[in-house]
Amino acid sequence: MDKILERIAVCVERGKVNAKSIFPPDLKGEDGADELTFQAISSGISPAEVLNRGLIEGMRRIGEKFRQNKAFVPDVLIASKAMNTAMNHIKPFFLTNEIQSKGKVVIGTVSGDLHDIGKNILGMIIRGGGWEVIDLGVDVSPEKFVASIENDSPNAVCLSALLTTTMLNMEKIISEIKKAYPRLPVLVGGAPVTQEYADSIYADFYSPDPQCALDFLNNSITQK
């Protein structure tokens, strides 16, 4: 059992989606995360084991490498594709409650900002860590964040910004969220954001990289 779970973790970490994938070249022709996940579940390994010790472990490794500048944007993108493809075999077990997500997180790029790659990577890492992600997209207004919180009852909200000008909109969004939901954790991140700025706008957590956000969620958030 350990062997196949480790192979799944390696496939996710290295972005080996399925047998047809040409990346990475040294695994060419071999089964990928897609086939191995199917085989693991078919052989009787619990979907929760496959998810936690295979897929989530693979995403944890690539997230850690990304934090250490040992992996880069395309590496995370392709790892996430491997994870998402394999998740098609796992999803049915969420519906039967055999496995449950760790909780819900609302993410979005703040109003005025149309950049989505950083926010998407954050979503991939968090989703890859076993959380349900509600992605509001880009240019998200304070009202849209608050409406989503009302509808989706998330455990946390993550705000992303790429520009010094749009970063300033985080303050209003946090203020609006906190008016209605004072105890809901709000995380902030993005290239120009600093701990000092996060403190000044009363964000609950400053995340310099996606893995930090995931660590915060895993360590600090109690499921509803």
């Binding site: 990346f23 070249p25 040294d26 880069f72 395309p74």
Partner: peptide, 13 residues
């Protein structure tokens, strides 16, 4: 140069 991982150092890529 944007793809620093050596996995992309192939003819196919």
């Amino acid at each position: 140069g944007w793809f620093k991982n050596e996995a992309y150092n192939t003819e196919e890529f």
